Computed example of a mutant assay.
Amino acid sequence: MFSFLEMTVSLLWKPFHRIANGRLMQQRTMSLYNQTHGFREDEIKAKLQQFTGGSVDLSKEDDGIGILTLNNPRFMNAFTGTMMIELQERVAELESWKNGKGLIVHGAENTFCSGSDLNAVRTLSRPQDGVNMCMFMQNILTRLMRLPLITVALIQGKALGGGAELTTACDFRLMTSESEMRFVHKHMGLVPGWGGAARLVQILGSSPALRLLSGAEKVDAERALCLGLIEAVLPSSEERRPLQEARTWLNLYTKGPPEVIQSVKKVVSAGRELQLETALRIEKEIFGTVWGGPANLHALAQRTKHK
C-alpha cells in the first residue's frame, strides 16, 4: 500500500519540483546590478584580469561539504583581480551542485584574507572603476550568501577589510583563539563596498555595527563571541586542525539528504531577505518540493519519532 502511495506522490512531485526549483534558482542567481544601473561587467572584468596572482580553489567532498580556499598567502590571501573573477566562477559552480549541503570558506596557510590587492586599488582609482568593482563584488557575495548550502567562514589569523566583509556573506563564522577581525576601511578613507556594512547590521544590529566600522577596532575571538559575530571559538590554532574542527561543527547542521538541507537554507534566505507575504509564498513553494519527496516518504515509512 505504501509503495503505491510512493509511486503516486512521486508522479505528482517531480514536475512541481522542477518548476519550483527552476524559479528559485533564477531568483538566487539574479544579479543586484546590471546595465540599467550603469554596471558594465565585461569592462570591469577586463580590468581585473590585469591583476594576476593567487587562486580561489574549490574541492567538493562526497559527504556534500565543499571547501573554498583563498590561496594567495604571500599577501595574506588578499584578493587579486583574477581571484575576484575566480570567486565568481566558484560560486556559479556551487549554485549548480545538486549534492551539496555545506561550504567552509577559509584561507591558505593559517590566515583568512586581508581584503583587496592594493596594486589593483591604486590603479583602479577612478570613482567609476571603484563603483564597478563594488557592484561586481556585491553581486558575487550576494550570490554566495544565497547559496542553498549552509556556509561557514573559518577565520584563522587575520580577516581584514574586504576579508572581514567576506565573512559576513557566510551563514556562520568560527574563529581560532589567536585570530582577529577588523573592518579597517575607515583608515583607508573608505567604507565597506562589498556589502559588508549592510550584512553586519543584519548580524549585530546598527549600534554594534557602527562601533566596529567607525572605530576600526580589532575584534578578537572572545569579543566576537560576546558580540554574537561568531558561533564558536575553535580550540586549536594549528594550520590544519581547525579545518577538521570546522567540518565537525558543520556536520551537526548538514545531516540529512541534500534536498532537505538545501530547502532549509532556502526558506531561511527568503525569510531574511523578503517581505513577509513574499517569503511565505516562497516557503509554500519550497514546502511543495519536499512534501511527498523521497526523504519525506522515507521518514513516513520508517515511522520516524522525535525524542
Rank of each mutant, 00 (worst) to 15 (best):
H17K: 15
G66Q: 03
T29C: 13
H37Y: 08
G66V: 10
L70I: 15
G66F: 08
L58N: 01
H17R: 09
D63A: 15
R18H: 10
T69S: 10
M84D: 10
E93P: 13
H17Y: 13
T69F: 06
E95K: 05
G54F: 00
L48V: 01
T29P: 03
A92V: 08
E95G: 10
K47W: 00
I85C: 12
G38N: 05
H17D: 15
T29F: 10
L48Y: 02
Q49K: 04
L68Q: 09
Q26V: 03
H37G: 03
E41F: 11
S96K: 15
S55A: 08
V56D: 05
L94W: 05
Q50D: 07
R18N: 09
Q49S: 11
N21Y: 06
V56M: 06
R18I: 14
S31E: 11
D62F: 11
E41Y: 13
G64D: 15
D42A: 10
E86I: 13
G81H: 01
R74F: 00
R90V: 15
T29K: 08
Q49A: 11
K60N: 10
L58S: 00
I85F: 14
L68C: 14
R90E: 08
E86N: 10
N34M: 04
V56W: 04
S31I: 02
V56L: 08
M84G: 03
K60M: 15
Q50Y: 03
S59W: 05
G53M: 04
I19K: 06
S31P: 03
L48C: 10
R90H: 07
L48T: 01
R18Y: 10
G53I: 00
M25I: 02
A20P: 02
T82E: 04
Q26F: 02
R23S: 07
F51E: 05
R18A: 14
G81R: 01
Q88H: 11
E86G: 05
L70W: 14
G53V: 00
L58W: 00
M76N: 15
E89W: 02
T69N: 04
I65Y: 13
F51G: 00
T52S: 02
A78L: 04
M83T: 09
E61S: 15
E86P: 12
R74W: 00
P73W: 05
Q88D: 13
E41N: 11
H37S: 12
P73Q: 09
L68T: 06
G64S: 11
Q50H: 11
P73V: 08
S59P: 05
E61Q: 14
M30A: 10
